[in-house]
């Protein structure tokens, strides 16, 4: 295998890993505050649809992004209403959100564009185009580092760079700010946070809002940068893979970068090499596609380090008993 093909696999790793990374960080904020969020998939789907639809209608990818974030925030608010305000079951709320998203995107999409629930193909300014970093073309011929810079580091949409910046930003917010300290505390011991006079409800809603914004960007990236338009069910389980990556990363931001890029790499390899012939055995495509899920089960089983979720995760907080 040539050096170029290595670079090109890593390049698509970044492309395919970016939505996972954004959704994974979204889940990280939500779950660190003690709210399980299996609705990542639904929020991404709604955002992907609204982004593509608005971008197509207005011709602006940026307006599409805003619409996607708004849609995702509405779904976050529903999740918050159900799981924080009315202290309902967070998992059931997540399931409902995912179903609602799959249904409503097709329903509205079919009514809006009459293309089987998808949007027409986007072109021009309705898509986020790949940026060329300074000197990328000039440095292309430098051996080894040239292609890495020109192909792998340069030439992605602005949302990819944003996603990567979100990793140190998340780390900083989580570990170096007062808000982050409280957020982590509310996911472990909400009663203590409440005793200190800080609102558990407000903190959790804030975490869900951040998650909504991040899922919105993830969905927008899917339909207006990675692909040119929305197709029904286009998230295709990425929200669940992001959830798996979050467990893999044990709810920590830098590890989330690692796990999402690893899962992105698996997807890139599986697209490039549908079957991998190792001589003694042939690894089928279906195995590669499902490796993230299988690995997550292995991690959850505690055979490779124990994944311990935030202690108060999934428990609605009741102020007085």
């Amino acid at each position: 295998m040539s050096f170029e093909s290595y670079v090109s696999i890593l390049d698509s790793t970044v492309r395919l890993g970016t939505p996972l990374l954004l959704a994974c960080l979204a889940g990280l904020f939500s779950e660190r505050s003690g709210v399980f969020d299996i609705g990542l998939e639904g929020k991404m789907l709604v955002a992907a649809f609204l982004s593509a639809a608005v971008a197509y209608t207005t011709g602006s990818a940026w307006l599409g992004l805003l619409a996607g974030i708004a849609g995702s925030l509405v779904f976050s608010a529903i999740h918050g209403l159900a799981s924080i305000t009315f202290r309902g079951n967070q998992l059931i709320s997540g399931v409902a959100i995912n179903m609602l998203a799959s249904g409503i995107t097709v329903l509205v999409g079919q009514n809006w564009f009459h293309q089987g629930g998808g949007t027409p193909a986007l072109s021009g300014a309705a898509r986020f185009r790949d940026l060329t970093l300074p000197f990328a073309n000039e440095l292309r011929d430098v051996p080894f580092l040239g292609p890495i810079y020109a192909e792998l580091i340069s030439g992605h949409s602005v949302l990819v760079y944003l996603a990567f910046l979100m990793v140190p930003a998340t780390w900083w917010v989580l570990y170096r700010t007062r808000f982050g300290l409280r957020l982590r505390a509310v996911g472990e011991n909400p009663a203590a946070v409440d005793t200190a006079g800080v609102s558990v409800v407000a903190l959790r809603f804030a975490a869900l809002a951040i998650a909504g914004v991040l899922c919105g960007i993830a969905g927008s990236y899917l339909s207006t940068a990675l692909a040119a338009g929305f197709g029904r069910e286009m998230t295709a389980g990425r929200g669940y893979i992001a959830l798996a990556a979050l467990i893999f990363a044990k709810w920590r931001p830098w590890q989330a970068l690692g796990s999402t890029m690893f899962f992105g790499f698996l997807a890139a390899v599986s697209i490039r090499y549908p079957t991998i012939d190792l001589g003694v055995l042939v690894i089928p495509n279906e195995f590669m596609d499902n490796l993230p899920y299988i690995l997550t089960v292995v991690v959850l089983a505690g055979f490779v380090g124990k994944a311990i979720p935030p202690r108060a995760g999934g428990e609605p907080y009741v102020k007085e008993r």
Binding site: A82, G88, N89, S93, A96, I97, M99, L100
Partner: peptide
């Protein structure tokens, strides 16, 4: 179905 799950389950 999603609304039924939402209202009978979570809300």
């Amino acid at each position: 179905q999603a609304l039924v799950i939402l209202f009978t389950g979570a809300l």
